Computed example of a mutant assay.
Amino acid sequence: MNIPTTLSRLARCGLLSLAALLAGGPAAFAADLQVSPISLQFQAREQGQPFWLSNSGTQPLRAQIRVQRWSQAEGVDKLEPANDLVASPPTVEVQPGQRQLIRIVRPQTQPAPVERAYRLIVDELPPSTAPQAGASGAPAGLQFLLRYSVPVFIAPDVAAAGAPANAASAAAPGSGDALTAQWKPAAPQVLEVANAGKARVRISRLIYENAKGEQTELVPGLMGYVLAGQRMQFQLPPAATRLAPGGVFKARFNDNLQEQVLRLAAPTS
């Protein structure tokens, strides 16, 4: 399924993507389906966490919840079905003004030396009864179905990682220090970022600072995640074609509001 660039970026960063089903007639949209929280973090041996669906609309809604293993292969996100993390129940109906508890459960808590990543996919399902047709015989309006893609992380087990049992950083997201990047200036320009750490790094507000200290903002908000031990490619905006060599890329990593240098390897064609 093709998703607009902005929504694709939001989906990578743990927000929603939107699937619209055209049904004819005037457009009408309300995000009646809500989810909470927008990300989940399991400790290394934690077995379950709550996840909530709520319905702010006036009609019942149905939703399907799936868990998929998240990896990054050849610089792109890859999702595949997971059986070591499950949603219970997998389908629900939420009444107007109500909310429904979903348990996200690990059947077995197998230790892992690096953080594991998943996506919780929540799909709003079509209503069980079709909307009434208008005078022309066409459906009454434009029907939108929401899809949420919620990131889920399981912290590495300190013993499996060979770290001291009291290591405070074992369950914490990774640091920008574990990242290295390669700028590929051939069109379309790509920034490939590798993460040598044991936990993911979330990258936001990417800027380029030239040798004179002048800055060009390339990505004002969230850019995406680089998972533990993996690499990800990010296509740069057209403004990158005007960047002069000899500068540095800077970005915000995880919850740090201060831009830091993203270590850059030599450009390649």
Rank of each mutant, 00 (worst) to 15 (best):
I102H: 06
R252H: 01
Q98K: 15
A160C: 13
P90F: 04
R116N: 11
S17V: 15
Y148D: 10
T216E: 08
D255C: 02
L262M: 07
L179H: 11
A140N: 07
G97Y: 03
D32S: 12
L15K: 02
D123T: 12
T5Y: 12
T109W: 00
A211V: 09
L243R: 06
G174S: 04
S39N: 12
T180Q: 15
G221L: 10
Q258V: 15
A167T: 12
L7C: 00
R205L: 14
Q47P: 04
A187D: 14
V92R: 09
A44G: 04
Q47I: 06
Q258C: 01
A130R: 06
L227D: 06
G162V: 13
E214Y: 05
Q235R: 13
L218D: 12
K212H: 04
R242W: 09
S204Y: 01
Q189Y: 01
S149N: 01
P111K: 13
P4I: 04
A73K: 07
A30E: 14
K198V: 08
M232W: 02
E217V: 15
L101K: 15
R66F: 03
P267R: 12
V219R: 06
P81I: 03
A31M: 14
V226H: 11
I38N: 07
S8F: 03
V152E: 00
E115M: 15
P245S: 05
D77A: 05
A265L: 12
G197R: 11
P173T: 11
Q68V: 15
A112T: 15
I121P: 01
E192D: 07
